[in-house]
Design a protein around this nucleic acid. Structure first.
Lengths: 175, 175
DNA sequence: AAACACAGTTGCATTTCACAACCATAACAG
DNA sequence: CTGTTATGGTTGTGAAATGCAACTGTGTTT
């Protein structure tokens, strides 16, 4: 039994042993999930995504995991094709196509026909889309600053390194 | 085939500078998202969740983010109430209630009335539910081993430490 | 006794997402 | 150059997650 009844809950940031104790969330331990990377990643996803939705609620790319990436890709790679975006997103083509539909309807992106392949589309950003991309970048920067700046710089580099490697590794397993 | 024609794409695992280069995903850089923790967390979530679904596809708790945690909580805390689970999950009560509905229907959990509060429910695991919880723990262990064992032990502790702290910090911001 | 707070349920309404089937174009085989 | 196969994108459909508002019943407070 931990000292739960204690009237003063010490700020976790200042307790050196915090990392060794079983985690308590809303007063409950979480079993094997406490040591599971996957659980923290999945839980962090919820929080990060909600926060991002709150920040972007009024923009045309809120909600869902693909819109932001798609927008920035089209901004950076004029002429990119939907199937390329689908591959980056790891979504199927119908799903990706509908994401693009919405962006076209919102006037952020325009569809053209690829010069070399009549089947393929050539996506380009519109001025409004480019403006939005800039806003999105700024929002991402802000969120990163607010949520992750507390991590010490050395830790941050390490954290990013592991995240990147894990992501690439899992990606390659999937495809 | 490791002899890639491109001058700059050696196998990432063996390249010491891999962490310094911009990441390429399906041949495309991902703009500011490359340095964004949130993007990697959100993307990792997709991959991890899909993998978990694949592993659990046949069990009664596949898909969705709350079922596994709820099952283990009920297994560990007999008599726990739905609202407590909702708080851990950071989901609203209707959502949590429906998760529990499905588990009750599947014979994993039984609902009772709390001894001290006629409004509240007292959830307990059934033998079938307990068996499933054991299976789930084993699957989690396997996934962790397969996906994260490549991280060096020291790095792993560090990674977990940062994940935990980030999670707790974000949680406290939300509530 | 009335007002308020809390636990859980029900009814929507929204959004996401994947699979299958389909059309058009391209690439390739004979 | 013709038939077959592969590729890019769209449409149809259904399953599932999730969240908000409104409701019932119970506890708590004034």
């Amino acid at each position: 039994m931990t000292t739960d009844a204690s009237p003063h809950s010490p700020p976790p940031d200042t307790d050196p042993d915090a990392d060794l104790r079983p985690l308590e969330i809303a007063g409950h331990r979480i079993d094997i999930l406490d040591g599971a990377f996957s659980w923290f990643i999945r839980s962090l996803d919820s929080v990060v995504s909600r926060d991002l939705d709150a920040r972007m609620g009024h923009l045309e790319v809120a909600k869902g995991k693909g819109k932001i990436t798609a927008l920035l890709l089209i901004d950076d790679y004029p002429g990119i094709r939907p199937s390329e975006i689908a591959e980056v997103l790891m979504r199927d083509r119908p799903t990706t196509g509908r994401i693009i539909d919405r962006m076209v309807q919102a006037g952020l992106v325009s569809r053209g026909v690829s010069a070399h392949d009549q089947r393929a589309q050539s996506l380009t950003i519109t001025p409004a889309g480019h403006d939005l991309a800039e806003k999105v970048r700024e929002i991402i920067r802000q969120q990163e600053a607010e949520f992750f700046d507390f991590i010490a710089p050395e830790d941050r580099a390490q954290f990013m390194r592991i995240l990147r490697r894990t992501y690439m590794r899992m990606r390659s397993k999937w495809t």
